[in-house]
Simulated scan of single mutants.
Amino acid sequence: MSEAKSGDTVKVHYTGTLSDGTEFDSSRGQEPLEFTLGQGQMISGFEDAVLGMALGENKTVTLASEEAYGERNEAMVQEVPRSAIPPEIELTEGMLLQAQGPDGETLRFTVADFNEEAVTVDGNHPLAGRDLTFQLELVQIA
């Protein structure tokens, strides 16, 4: 039976949950997730879990935060003047904002708090610092 190896393009159905059982993402009811193993397209623990899986195999893995989106970095939480946000943007807690970094890269922030004077933005991935559990099903190897 064929097993997934580095360089293979695979299709995987997955459901991701937090330690309390809350589902944060799933491909069920949609097209399976397609990616190439060994290309760094996925978080390391997810890719490592798929390596060696057989076609049609199902498994559940729990990834420590280091294997997923890393630990939270409090230095990535900053307060910026409200005037730095375009006035037409109606802020809400939890909303995502984008900005352009000094090297032209796209930076993503979550609004953590705001008032008339300042906005607290969090540059951590929303799942940083969390252990993640994935139910995986390998549906195609190419």
Rank of each mutant, 00 (worst) to 15 (best):
L37A: 08
M76N: 08
E116P: 05
N73Y: 00
P32D: 03
K11L: 04
M1K: 13
A64E: 14
F134D: 01
H13M: 03
P32T: 05
F109W: 15
V50C: 01
S27V: 07
F114E: 09
F35D: 01
E117N: 14
E137W: 02
V80T: 10
F46K: 00
P102S: 14
E3P: 00
E117F: 07
T62N: 05
S44I: 12
M95Y: 02
A4T: 07
D103M: 07
G94D: 02
G21V: 02
V10N: 05
E23L: 03
L63N: 02
Y69S: 13
S2N: 14
M53D: 09
I85S: 11
G94K: 10
S27D: 07
D131S: 12
S27P: 07
K11G: 01
L97E: 09
Q39F: 09
T17L: 02
Y14F: 15
E105L: 04
V12P: 06
M1S: 15
I89V: 13
T133D: 05
V50T: 06
I89Y: 09
D103L: 08
F35C: 09
G52F: 04
L91D: 12
P81D: 10
R82Y: 10
T92P: 00
N58S: 14
E116Y: 09
A75D: 15
M76S: 07
F134L: 12
L136H: 12
Q39S: 14
G38S: 07
L33R: 10
E137Q: 13
A75H: 08
I141G: 06
E79H: 02
T92R: 10
A4S: 07
G123N: 10
E90R: 11
L97G: 08
P32W: 03
K59Q: 08
L91P: 15
Y69T: 07
P32A: 03
E23G: 00
E116W: 00
M76H: 09
P87F: 06
V80W: 14
H13R: 03
S27K: 05
L37T: 03
F109A: 15
L107Y: 07
G123E: 10
S83I: 09
G45S: 12
L51Y: 02
G40C: 10
V111Q: 05
D113S: 11
P87E: 13
T110K: 13
N73F: 01
E71F: 10
D48E: 13
